[in-house]
Simulated assay, not measured.
Amino acid sequence: MKWTHDWVTVRASILLTFAVAVLSIIVGLVHISTGGVDSALAMYVPDGVRRAVGFTGTLTGFTMLGSAYALKQRFRVGWYATAILLPITAIQGLLQVSPFSVPLVAVSVVSVPALFYNRTRFDRTFSPSPTQLAAGIALVTALSYGTFGSYALREEFDGIVTLTDAFYYTIVTASTVGYGDVTAAPSSELGKLFSISVLLINVAAFAVALGVLLTPAIEAQLSKALGRMTDSQFNLLDEHVVILGYGDLTEPIIENLSDSVQFAVITTDESVARRLSDRDIPVLTADPSDEEPLQRAGIADARAAIVATENDAKDALAILTARQLNDEMQILAAAMQRENVAKLRHAGADRVISPSEIGGRLLANSAIGKRDAEAASQQLLGEELD
């Protein structure tokens, strides 16, 4: 395998970041629950620091899950967040001075060069939608209302002395857990009314935020049902092959590409698109001769395009469009009519084959007993040679 293409890839950076996040959470929870396992270096780290990094390590892990998701979406902010969090997880692992933290430190260190190697790949700017902004503002406002309001009215409550107590009360009330350790004073009508308002406002804010989080998942399912690629599938395409159109040759092409390279299919046939989507094949229902679907499928970053339908005229238009959008990639085509081979080359295809001519030659050579023709036929069909 080539190091630059098969190992140090965008996907490797994302998977390593997820691995660090999960390890940080697990190691932090183990450290909190067991109090840490002493090692030879434990005497050099104060107990208070070790307990603190166990708790903060878990928080860092959950934060890194968010940055890993941002990396998956190719957001630049996700790259910056991960670049900051990786050294933090490594330092936290070192300060925990536990055998359990060794994998965390090792994976964190390994993740850094992969992340920096692919820094140019994470170039999307994060532009939150109005709905996302509204959800974020509503959530922050609701929590602030509960925290500062309860602190200002702390005389009306039993158990609120500091801002930390007020924040704790707000979170417990908003989550409808209600431990009962911080409550409005029995004789305080104002405290009771404020508690009701905190509950209603925060539950509504959390409901809005949850809706915003679930909307992309719902859209992904709808896209799959309609035979369309999701944004996450688009963003992960890199050095891939774009198959323009769908014909009799497309399935063999897909079978041969599946185990070796990423690819996406653009077709106008909605039923075909749904079948491909059910097989988790990235597919876009659109005209492959239009610029917009080719751009969405990442034609600018593609290593090659394959055009092989039963309509040479439409294939020529698709080749022209693809060549205009990427003049460096390989374009491979199949001409159904032998006389159209030269025309598809003039349209911009680098290589053009005629399946009928190839098949005819193989059959003729096999008929007259040429061994090499039979061997070539068996190799093309994936059969074992006699």
Rank of each mutant, 00 (worst) to 15 (best):
K2M: 12
K2A: 13
K2C: 11
H5K: 15
D6T: 11
T9S: 04
T9K: 00
R11K: 12
S13M: 01
L16P: 04
V20D: 00
L23M: 02
S24A: 04
I26M: 05
G28K: 00
L29H: 04
S33L: 14
G36K: 00
S39G: 09
A40I: 10
A40F: 12
L41G: 09
M43V: 12
P46M: 01
G48M: 04
R51M: 12
A52Y: 12
V53W: 04
G54M: 00
F55N: 08
F55S: 10
L59W: 14
T60N: 12
T63M: 10
S67D: 05
L71M: 02
K72A: 14
R74F: 04
F75H: 11
R76P: 08
R76A: 08
A83S: 07
A83P: 05
L85W: 06
A90G: 03
I91R: 06
L94N: 06
Q96N: 09
V97F: 06
P99Y: 01
F100W: 15
P103H: 02
V107Y: 03
V107M: 03
V109R: 02
V109S: 03
V110K: 05
V112W: 01
P113E: 00
S127F: 12
S127Y: 14
T131I: 13
L133I: 14
L133M: 12
G136P: 03
L139H: 10
T141H: 09
G149S: 03
R154T: 06
R154I: 04
R154L: 04
E155F: 10
V161T: 15
T162D: 08
T162F: 04
L163Y: 15
T164H: 13
A166K: 05
T170M: 05
I171W: 10
V172E: 15
V172G: 09
T183E: 14
A184K: 03
F194L: 04
I196Q: 13
I196P: 11
I201E: 05
N202A: 08
A205H: 07
L210K: 09
G211C: 09
L214D: 08
P216W: 00
L222E: 14
K224H: 09
A225C: 07
G227V: 06
M229I: 13
S232L: 15
F234H: 14
L236N: 14
L236A: 13
V241Y: 02
T250F: 00
I254S: 01
N256H: 08
N256G: 09
S258P: 05
S260Y: 11
Q262R: 12
V265L: 00
T267C: 01
T268N: 10
E270P: 15
R274S: 08
R274A: 07
D278V: 08
L284I: 13
T285H: 12
A286C: 06
A286Q: 07
D287P: 05
Q295G: 07
Q295H: 10
A297E: 08
A300R: 15
A300D: 14
A302S: 06
A305I: 01
A305W: 01
A308V: 02
A316V: 02
I319E: 00
Q324H: 11
Q324R: 15
D327M: 00
Q330F: 06
Q337H: 14
N340Q: 13
A342T: 11
I358L: 10
L362A: 02
A364Y: 09
S366Y: 09
S366D: 11
R371H: 10
A373N: 07
A375I: 13
S377A: 14
Q378R: 15
L380T: 06
L381I: 05
L381W: 06
E383W: 09
D386S: 13
